[in-house]
Design a protein around this nucleic acid. Structure first.
Lengths: 112, 112
DNA sequence: GCAATAATTCTATATTTCTAGAAATAACGA
DNA sequence: TCGTTATTTCTAGAAATATAGAATTATTGC
């Protein structure tokens, strides 16, 4: 489960277009991941800039990096991404006193 | 459907703790929404700062603002939040050539 | 050891964002 | 109209982030 700080950091990490691009190519790549060089080929971005963005994504634990020879394989952290996706609406309407929003999951913290 | 730019802007909007706090109280409040003053009470933040953050959230269309007398009611844009939540993993594993990630939805853009 | 490759760190500049006090605007009630 | 309430806009300094070239580190093959 994500803390509020982790969630904000995660959202900030994908809150810039170049970084969102990086994450999306990794998500598409699936569990095989991509090396830094492969990402660089796909996105056509200078190495130092890419490295900076990858560090950001790794710090937010949205991307995992594994060294393999002189390459570094980057993989999307799918569990973390799912947790992020769930985070925003998790407590939906917990304070709602009148009719709850139709079709909206109710908060687990709200009294059943 | 969200463009890449809209998605990045949306994530950036919830990518700061104070702003995530604002969004979360609105999500909890449900469809009734909250006035700026009510948010201010709950979060204990200066009005000018809150106004700045709300503008950010509204620009990303994560929050809708409706004027009501001298108050402004703010509501979470649930549809948009759902779209954001779906965005990250939508194209999961589209480029995967070997075994797809178990339990992971396949991309709509991938050949069926 | 040496050249080549893969990636990071260093550095510097430009831009954006954060924060919040002060002033301004807008709406209502008497 | 006047005072009060609700909110925004103005302003400005501090902090964070973006970008990318140059230098550096690490790994491999010969």
């Amino acid at each position: 489960m994500l803390t509020r700080e982790e969630a904000a950091q995660g959202f900030a990490a994908v809150g810039s277009e170049p970084r969102l691009d990086v994450l999306l190519v990794l998500v598409r790549a699936g569990s095989a991941g991509l090396t830094v060089g492969e990402i660089q080929e796909r996105l056509n971005v200078p190495g130092s800039t890419l490295s900076h963005h990858l560090r950001f994504l790794a710090a937010a634990e949205l991307v995992e990096q594994e060294k393999n020879g002189r390459s570094i394989v980057n993989r999307a952290a799918f569990n973390r991404l799912e947790a992020l996706a769930d985070y925003l609406l998790r407590e939906c309407c917990a304070d709602e006193t009148t009719a709850p929003r139709k079709g909206q999951a109710q908060s687990k913290t709200a009294a059943e």
